[in-house]
Amino acid sequence: MNAPVRLAVRGLTKRFGGLVAVRDLSFAIRAGEILGLIGPNGSGKSTVMKLIMGIERPNMGTVQLDGVDISRWPSHRVARAGIGIVFQRSRPLRRQTVLENIKLAFLPDSLWQLVAEPSVDAKARCIAERVGLGAVMNRNPATLPFGDLRRLEMAKAIARHPKVVPTTSGSQSPAITGNQNDVRYSQPPEKDKKSTVPAKKE
C-alpha cells in the first residue's frame, strides 16, 4: 500500500512575463497511483506537464524523480531518467511505417549506433500487437485514423519503459491507465508499477 514516492513536485511556479501559469504547486505520486489535474482551458495543466518533462524551466520549485531533482535537466535527460510524456497531438514520422515509429523509441541516444539492436524489432512488434496496432504496423501513419495515432503515441511511451507517464490528453485512453503493466517482452516485466499523471481536459 505504501509504495515509495516516485514523483514529488514541490512549490512549482512558472511565470510567463506577468502571467503566473503555475503557482506554488506541490504533489506526490507513488508507484501505481494515477493523479488527474483538472481545470478549465488555460489553467496551466499542460504547463505543469512541460515543467515536469523539462520542456519549460520552472521559476521556482523542484521536481524529484525517485528522490533526484530533475527540474533543471534538459528534456532528453529527463526522458532517459524515466518520464515518458504522451503528447496530445501526435506527429509521427511520415515516411516511416508504424513499426519503424515504434522502433524509434527504443533507439539509444547515440551518434554511432547505425543499426538498431536485433531485439528491438521483436519488442516493437510485441508492443504494436499489444496496443492494437498489429494489423496496421506496416502502414504509413498518415493513413491511420486518429484513434490509431493515439495508440501509436501510447506504444512509443510503453517502449521507453517509463516510471512516470504524464499525458496531456483526454487521457481516458485505456492503455495508459490499465494495460500498461501487462506489456511483456521476452524478459519479465519490472516489479514496480508505473505512475501516471493524466492532465484531464476539463
Binding site: I55, P74, S75, H76, A79, I85
Partner: peptide, 12 residues
C-alpha cells in the same frame, strides 16, 4: 520534424 517530441523520446 518535431524537436520537442524527439527530446521527450530521450534524444539530444
Amino acid at each position: 520534424q518535431d524537436p520537442i517530441e524527439a527530446q521527450a523520446l530521450g534524444f539530444n
